[in-house]
Design a protein around this nucleic acid. Structure first.
Lengths: 246, 246
DNA sequence: CTAGTCAGTGAACGAATGTTCACTGAAATA
DNA sequence: TATTTCAGTGAACATTCGTTCACTGACTAG
């Protein structure tokens, strides 16, 4: 809106270590803090990785409020406590950073599959367990899920494609699980995929609704999750009657 | 990316009428084109409305490639053939224009409801009819649907809220239809809404997949629509077995 | 110990942005 | 006919942007 806000100042997430360079040997040995010690110890490669990760984290935070296409390289660098030019040591553009963020953000989703499978082999109500895990993952990783839902159909083609590819992978994992559960019921792989796709659609819609919850009404979370549970049950009920046309 | 592209030039969508101002009376009467005649005839209010609509149209086109948050006021004005300052005569900001675009873009969706209802009372397979109508509406109004799907979880809060409100309305219309169809089967309104929500999720996911089709593979459209049809059938099958817990 | 690597610096560039302001001239009003 | 209204103009502004370039200095490798 108003193009007058941030002076080009280094502040925020940068380490205090930057400010203690001209320090006497005595002070360095006696007053050094733990985090400073870590930084002093870190190898060059480690420091680079740390900055890189910081850039990713900072961008993920910024996407909480706006979309990737409207986030500037300078803004990310500023927030990460480095100079704009240093950004290029890690990524060739914001878009490229976004593509790498996709991997990063898919981790909670992949974890969901593992958790669900473990819960499924263990005992009890698979659907209830799945929905619980979904709720927990979204609660614990809101920024990642927000990034995925915001950029899934967002304005950056490369990111959109990367997310589509990852989600296709996710759907095919679910298809495998469904195949295992319907073994002996003569389902075509096409129908299995169709069903997995429907479930993923329902779950992603749930994720998006969870993310839009007004923090003043945390009770909405239960309402949404409970509805998601019934939706999955409705689908399961349909499956129990479905016969694939061959 | 590269901040060096568009010279500030008026061109494109503006009417040729702009260029014939110093014209002799004779020419004006004999060589004037139809569109010029329309413009000359138009009242001030009509001309204003025309420009306003042009701004909306141009923005919708631009959103085909990028997201609302990354579209500049100057760009929209340039594309519409007016000077940046004139933009303010119609909208107070790009975001405000976006909110008005929501109404505009919901029209095909509302039309879908009407068409489907008409088809349902007439005859035959409701699900197949619905999917056909969906495919046609998306094919005929890709820009509107792209805007809705891109900005539904996009970076502009006001637009996001407006879309959420409209979609909630859409879901409740579908809920009404479902209530009519399940009359006598003892469905709770909560379950009806849950089901309508699931159907809307499935249909919106279908819309988004239709929009992502590579134009070199138009046969994908049938594959996607056919899958959507089976998904709706699966849900309908589940409904036939569902009994609401009261 | 020395030479080289390379993450981060800081100034500079040309271009684009949102917004202001005083203006013009044709259509609407009186 | 004379006056007012108002959509559109065009110059100017302060600011942000992405990208270039030569640089520094702490770490690494020989």
């Amino acid at each position: 809106m108003n193009p007058a806000q941030h002076p080009d100042v280094n502040m925020g997430a940068c380490d205090l270590g930057d400010m203690v360079t001209p320090i006497t040997p005595v002070d360095a040995r006696t007053l050094v803090s733990v985090s400073e010690a870590v930084i002093r110890t870190a190898s060059r490669a480690e420091r680079k990785e740390r900055t890189r990760q910081n850039l990713l984290d900072v961008t993920l935070k910024l996407i909480g409020k706006r979309s990737l296409a409207s986030i500037s390289l300078r803004e990310v660098a500023r927030e990460a406590g480095i100079v704009p030019t240093a950004f290029y040591r890690h990524f060739e553009s914001i878009d490229a950073l976004g593509v790498e963020l996709v991997d990063e953000s898919m981790r909670p989703l992949r974890q969901m599959i593992r958790d669900t499978r473990r819960g499924a082999t263990a005992k009890g109500d698979i659907i209830r367990g799945t929905v619980d895990i979904l709720g927990r993952q979204v609660r614990d990783n809101p920024d990642q899920f927000r990034f995925l839902s915001r950029e899934r159909y967002g304005g950056v083609t490369a990111v959109r494609r990367a997310i589509a590819t990852e989600l296709r992978l996710f759907t095919s994992e679910l298809t495998i699980d469904l195949a295992r559960m319907t073994a002996g019921y003569d389902w075509t792989s096409d129908d299995l995929e169709m069903t997995a796709d429907l479930m993923v659609s329902a779950m992603l819609a749930t994720v998006m609704e969870l993310l839009e919850i007004d923090k003043r009404h945390p009770e909405d979370e239960q309402v949404i999750l409970e509805r998601a549970e019934r939706q999955l049950r409705l689908i399961a009920l349909g499956m129990s009657v479905w016969r694939s046309a061959r």
